[in-house]
Write a protein that binds this DNA or RNA. Structure first.
Length: 479
DNA sequence: TGAAATGTTGGGGCG
DNA sequence: ACGCCCCAACATTTC
């Protein structure tokens, strides 16, 4: 073939990229193209932090392509229109792309497939969402059996990873839209975009001396430490392939064989499989995007108090662990996973606000915001999802903070105004005697808000409300 | 990938 | 010495 369009969607990398590899092997010219699709970049499910990471990623990808003699073509518009227009300007024989099974992408791609010669390769996960099923052909809805079946199939080895092409020839007469600039306020993001940074982080997490992965089982819950890989934004845009991660972790696991290090590496492996699980859930049960997976919890009578929601969003709930986490999110576009569970439990089970409100807020602010993982996480926390936390499992924000931020360093990092508060009061500052509040310049109601809700009360209210929803459902389908 | 309520046990103080 | 109470500490049940 003469010219193949390599259509980049969420595979911002040159190594282990089957679509690119095949395009380079089969065609004389390869045209890397990224489309700024208004359905994605103007959606109310994305915010500037993820868009900036995306734009930065495009810049890095273009730099990497330049080194191979190629360059990135950027176009703006609906993909069907963009390809129609392109066809009138240049000759291309086929479009090659990494598969994407999220609902919008799937629908978009089948329309493209009706009108253009397009071939799909691989995907954002190692296993296709339809490739891990029960013996009766039905998809799994519980994680543990899913992961067991997932692990039975073959693991990739590092030798099976595809190299990047030596050289890519790209026609030089194709116009490109400029890569949108990054907002000045976000140039200092903690997440440097690009494939090189993704690889550096993967190696730092797994392949250095005393790498964090070997203490992951216990360290991952500590919000005050950097015990997690922080790779999620890179997975989100495919700056790292799932296959690369699985191959590397597989090597690490074989190297240790047993003990705490082995358990830890396996715990991280399981986290990668959770990611595959939720991709599969969204593919097989697309309605979870709109409603509870569990039918019996679709009639919860939410409070949905807008003032409470605003306090949660802005980190002004008066619970330091909640407020610290929400500020970490709005300042960095990322939140520690343990903190995600705590703030989700608080929104849903203390404030009784519809989990979909929280889901949308996360999508708007997370650099790693992914519809499948985010929806899965929220439904898990709300107790409405597949293999979810039972509805009566309600986090106590104070106990969680004491367990997983024992020194209060996470809280004071994001709430420096609380740095003078002694640790025994840090996670419940409203219990400070008034003299101490004055002395530490943390007067509740003046320097820091009082708690917007009493946890014990909220817990009882939620147990009642969820119970009611179940009862209503039972009666509704009655005899 | 909880927490609270309730139940049980056992050591020590004490009459 | 003995029974009784108290109450941690731990276990089990319940939400």
């Amino acid at each position: 073939m003469k010219n193949i369009l390599w259509w980049i969607r969420r595979d911002f990398r040159l190594t282990d990229n089957e679509a690119l590899f095949q395009a380079a092997a089969r065609a004389e010219f390869v045209t890397p193209i990224f489309i700024l699709d208004p359905n994605l970049i103007r959606s109310n499910h994305v915010g500037e932090k993820r868009l900036n990471f995306l734009y930065g990623g495009l810049t890095h990808l273009n730099d990497d392509l330049l080194e191979l003699g190629s360059r990135l073509i950027v176009r703006e518009g609906h993909p069907l229109d963009v390809f129609s227009e392109l066809r009138s300007q240049v000759n291309f024989d086929a479009i090659f792309a990494e598969a994407d099974f999220s609902p919008y992408a799937h629908q978009r791609d089948s329309r493209i497939h009706d009108q253009f010669p397009i071939e799909f390769f691989g995907g954002p996960t190692l296993r296709y969402p339809m490739a891990v099923n029960k013996s009766n052909g039905e998809p799994y809805t519980v994680f543990t059996p899913y992961s067991r079946a997932w692990k039975v199939q073959s693991f990739p080895s590092e030798g099976q990873l595809l190299p990047k092409p030596d050289r890519i020839k790209t026609p030089d007469d194709i116009e490109s839209h400029p890569i949108p600039p990054i907002s000045a306020s976000l140039r200092q993001s903690v997440f440097v975009p690009g494939e090189a940074e993704a690889q550096r982080r993967l190696k730092a997490f797994i392949e250095t001396d005393r790498a964090p992965i070997y203490g992951y089982r216990t360290q991952r819950d500590r919000m005050d430490l950097d015990g997690t890989s922080q790779l999620s934004p890179y997975f989100r845009f495919g700056m790292l392939s799932a296959k690369q991660a699985f191959a590397v972790v597989n090597t690490a696991i074989s190297a240790v064989k047993m003990g705490e290090e082995y358990e830890s590496a396996n715990t991280w492996l399981n986290e990668l499989i959770w990611r595959e699980f939720y991709q599969s859930i969204l593919y097989n049960f697309p309605h979870v995007r709109k409603m509870s997976f569990r039918e019996n919890l679709r009639l919860i009578e939410w409070e949905n108090n807008p003032t409470d929601f605003e306090a949660w969003c802005n980190g002004e709930t008066g619970y330091p662990i909640i407020d610290a986490a929400m500020r970490q999110l709005s300042q960095t576009g990322w939140m520690h996973n343990r903190a995600r569970m705590i703030v989700a439990s608080f929104l849903v089970k203390d404030l009784l606000i519809d989990w979909r409100w929280g889901e949308r807020w996360f999508m708007q602010h997370l650099v790693d915001g992914d519809p499948a993982a985010n929806n899965g996480g929220w439904q898990w926390s709300a107790g409405t999802g597949t293999d979810a936390a039972p509805y009566f499992r309600i986090f106590n924000p104070i106990l969680q903070a004491q367990k997983f931020d024992p020194l209060g360093e996470y809280v004071t990092r994001w709430l420096p105004e609380l740095s003078g508060v002694p640790i025994q009061f840090l996670h419940k500052p409203w219990e400070m005697p008034l003299e101490l509040q004055e002395a530490k310049h943390v007067v509740i109601g003046r320097d820091y808000p009082g708690p917007i809700i009493d946890h014990a009360f909220a817990r009882q209210r939620t147990l009642e409300r969820f119970r009611l929803a179940k009862d209503k459902f039972e009666r509704g389908k009655g005899p």
